[in-house]
Design a protein around this nucleic acid. Structure first.
Lengths: 220, 220
DNA sequence: AGAATGAGCAAACAGTCGTTTACCGAGTGA
DNA sequence: TCACTCGGTAAACGACTGTTTGCTCATTCT
């Protein structure tokens, strides 16, 4: 038996977390591709060489940050899923949850929004994968809704992607609005509410039964 | 009188363009914040010191790239604006124009999509400004449509932003699909068509007259 | 024709970078 | 208790960075 086992591992994970936190702090003002290994260790108060005890390089740290960020994101979706009410209430809840989460986990959203189209391929791939899983979850919630009972899988997927992209865009717009500009924040959330309301109207009338089915151009 | 005036300026603009082209080439695989001055001059076949004859630093070159990219983008919008037909035809035209332009100006779209949320503040600001002007143009085209005659400015703006964001997301998805994957490209464009069609359905039924106006929460 | 301009170059500057090495010492397992 | 595992350190490595300086020489202006 060890005298007090686990102290080693706890200390290690602690400085690992310090590295992640330091990186996220620095990434609020720059992107991953310009983030230096020495920069991170300096911010974390650790010798440069110690970095290698935790990550192979900065890219691997970036991938770890992706998963950490989506961990907090999944907590968010749960908050909306709890109950489905009228269309307007669902929209208000959704937008509020996004706004709250952006305030609380600013760094995570900043990182995801920035690196989703960023220059580091493995990180972009990790984000795409997580986003895909997220979308599948959302589609799983949408499918059983009675209004969508006749939609096929492709259309549900299309709707889910639209929602996820809109949520991310709204989050990004909130980040650009800054943490202290309440007026700008209201403007962004109001726009998001109207866009979701517009889509809700589309959902109720799509595909439009009064219009003939579009001619397929798949095999011309 | 000069012997043959303008040769100086022409040569200068030529190597300036070589710098822009070299940078755009390198930016297909990395982001601006990690782009080095020496890297650009090396790719352009020019001595590092010569860079300063054209730009103050890499960030200024980035801002110049933003304006160059949007120059080609404005050509694109003209292609859609030429004529308005039935809803479905407009959607098909729009998506085709986006797909074509992504193929032809791959680098420009890649750059805009990447740096829109990137880590270089002045470049992000320049993109936001151009995107805002672009949205205003689009709203100017939407406003006179008879179906939208009763929409107020805020709602038109909201619709314009939705379209612009959707166009950019579609372009980005096409970039991720790769230039050679025709099947993936079809999947992306088909999704875009359905999303635009869904929004078109929403447009026709929004704000929903069968539902009471939402209670305003502006001043609780 | 002669003087002035200015784009481009080679060389050198001080810094910073990622990575490797050898080593220390606190937690660990028998 | 004793050997050992392993997270963290200091120092040094070559490579590369942005920027400055003084220069050349074709184009431009008078």
């Amino acid at each position: 038996m060890a005298h007090t086992p686990g102290i080693r591992a706890a200390r290690k994970q602690q400085t690992r977390q310090a590295l992640l936190d330091a990186a996220l702090r620095l990434l609020e003002q720059q992107s991953l591709s310009s983030l230096g290994l020495r920069e991170v260790t300096r911010e974390a108060g650790i010798a440069p060489a110690a970095f290698y005890r935790h990550f192979l390089d900065v890219v691997h740290l970036g991938v770890a940050l992706v998963h950490e960020s989506f961990g907090s994101l999944h907590a968010m979706i749960g908050a909306v899923r709890t109950e489905a009410a009228g269309s307007d209430e669902v929209i208000d809840r959704t937008v509020d949850v996004i706004a709250t989460h952006v305030r609380e986990r600013r760094g995570h959203f900043q990182f995801i929004a920035r690196e989703r189209h960023g220059g580091v391929a493995p990180v972009r791939a990790a984000i795409a994968e997580e986003l895909d899983a997220f979308t599948r979850d959302l589609v799983g919630d949408l499918a059983p809704l009675p209004e969508l009972s006749e939609w096929n899988d492709d259309d549900l997927r299309m709707l889910g992607e639209l929602y996820v992209n809109l949520a991310l865009l709204t989050a990004s717009a909130l980040l650009d609005a800054g943490p202290d500009d309440a007026a700008a924040e209201r403007r962004v959330t109001e726009t998001a509410r109207r866009q979701l309301s517009l889509i809700a109207a589309g959902r109720r009338h799509w595909p439009d039964p009064t219009r003939p089915p579009r001619p397929r151009r798949e095999t011309p």
